[in-house]
Design a protein around this nucleic acid. Structure first.
Lengths: 119, 119
DNA sequence: TACCACAGGGATAAATTTTTCCCTATTGCG
DNA sequence: CGCAATAGGGAAAAATTTATCCCTGTGGTA
């Protein structure tokens, strides 16, 4: 990975959450896994804008942070499944809340985002 | 600012939220402003780890995204206040939820974060 | 005048994250 | 064998974000 030069500050709950969720695709990964898309290849197809590499890295971090559990099926063909841990599950209502907020305000959000990204 | 080379994807609610909240200090800024710390200098003192510059930039983006409203007091001495807009207020319960989750699981979070940041 | 606090921008460097490209390894199939 | 799909890592480049440094400008105060 990349060895941080500036240590993160972990003062409050928000800092701690940021430390485990602040990655471009992490919340989407958790959400799609919660929806039942458990295999890496499947997740790559769900999130085609992300590079394959970074999805692997973020899945690994989520696993190290014990939000996901990795299960390796040494069958033929080999495959891998990620599942939410009990800890990870507790995050789902929050992610659902965020997604719902975004959906509920999508018109307004698209408008204000559009102010900065013309075209 | 920085002109993006890769346009953001705005497919679902989560993408839209990311577009307005994905900045290292944005959630903290919204939270501290909600707590009544409305002036830029005050926010800088609350978040000493952030550079003065980036706080200004993120405040400006939050304002452009209509989550904050900026009020300039042309008094002596000059001062500025940021307030949550009505739209911004609707985000507060979500932020509170995230912070509470972090606080509630802070022991576990510190442990799993510590796995990656020894010392 | 010199210095303080306030708010904030430009230019550039540094840090960090994400992408791109290419490699490993297993097993099945033609 | 050659090639498919599976999962995943190393190295380096590119993109993006954040930090650092120095500047503007106002008005109060010593």
């Amino acid at each position: 990975m990349y060895a941080r030069k500036i240590p993160p500050q972990l003062n409050c709950g928000l800092d701690l959450v940021a430390e485990v969720l602040y990655g471009k695709w992490k919340i989407r990964l958790l959400w799609f896994i919660h929806e039942g898309h458990r295999r890496p290849g499947e997740l790559q197809r769900k999130i085609p804008d992300a590079s394959r590499r970074v999805l692997h890295m973020q899945l690994k971090e989520l696993e190290e942070h014990e939000l996901l559990r990795k299960e390796i099926f040494a069958e033929v063909p080999l495959h891998v499944e990620y599942h939410l841990t009990e800890f990870g599950q507790t995050l789902i209502p929050l992610i659902a809340g965020i997604g719902n907020w975004g959906d509920a305000h999508s018109e307004q959000l698209r408008r204000v985002i559009g102010k900065r990204i013309p075209g």
